[in-house]
Design a protein around this nucleic acid. Structure first.
Lengths: 139, 139
DNA sequence: TTGGATGCAAAAGTTTTGCACGGTT
DNA sequence: AACCGTGCAAAACTTTTGCATCCAA
């Protein structure tokens, strides 16, 4: 199982809780909040405490196995499996569904900005908001 | 005073607390957090409670007089006077200073995205992270 | 065996809410 | 006078932490 390898490569011990969390995140096409992970795990009879969920997410985020997202309109952090590579999101304001955008429209712009401001650019976060086809109908 | 007009035009009563909060936000070139507003107001001998600060910010945000920012790396929401028009931010990862970027590098892109996804695009949030010239030196 | 991982409970921090009172219009 | 705005205290909610115990390596 490559999830176990992910953990080992990063010096993290292989525990039920960690593999289960990584597994859920890897299966999900949507970023997931900590409380949802807590509930899903306990439904699967993998009893974990909230502290462990948060501590696990922190460890996985530190090791870059998982990415933490802070999104306007959400009151809590979301986490997703890090499939590497740079991503942006199209977020439906109706159903809150999140779609990943593969292509980055900002290629080249960071260089321009660096010249204008003398900042060293480390990265950027871009989220686009709108309404998905379904939510357009149900209006 | 045009701040009083801002309030009246939006059906909000003109109170010490509201004008003071709008005033601070309007003076500030940086987005401000609720607790900072609370402290600044009380230093100015305008005694307000935390609930009022939050309720005021909620009212002002609803009326679009103020914009609420959720920024990765910050644990609390920031608020800024809404100078209208579309803005992006260049955030220094060292000193947390926030610089507004006037030009939007995404002009035109939303139309492309709409065609690709059939979403109605409502807007976007873009933040760029980096290190300001000062923080580059003190490294 | 040993240090990392977990559970539990409690704390911290931000934000929200209920209710009574006070101020603006 | 009517109704909105405010203060206070308590609650809600997410996230963090201390400490004892447990388990993977």
């Amino acid at each position: 199982m490559d999830i176990v390898d992910d953990l080992r490569r990063n010096g993290l011990r292989n525990t039920k809780c960690r593999t289960a969390i990584l597994d859920i995140l890897e299966q999900s096409d949507q970023p997931v909040a900590a409380d949802r992970l807590f509930r899903e795990l306990n439904e699967k009879d993998i009893t974990v405490s909230f502290s462990t969920v948060y501590r696990t997410l922190e460890a996985l985020t530190d090791k870059k196995l998982v990415t933490k997202l802070i999104i306007a309109g959400e009151d809590k952090a979301l986490f997703e499996y890090n499939r590497m590579g740079h991503r942006h999101y199209l977020i439906c304001l109706g159903c809150k569904r999140i779609l990943a955008i593969e292509h980055c429209p900002l290629e080249g712009y960071e260089e321009t900005l660096k010249k204008e401001t003398d900042y060293v650019i480390a990265g950027h976060k871009l989220n686009i908001y709108g309404y998905c086809p379904d939510c357009q109908k149900n209006e």
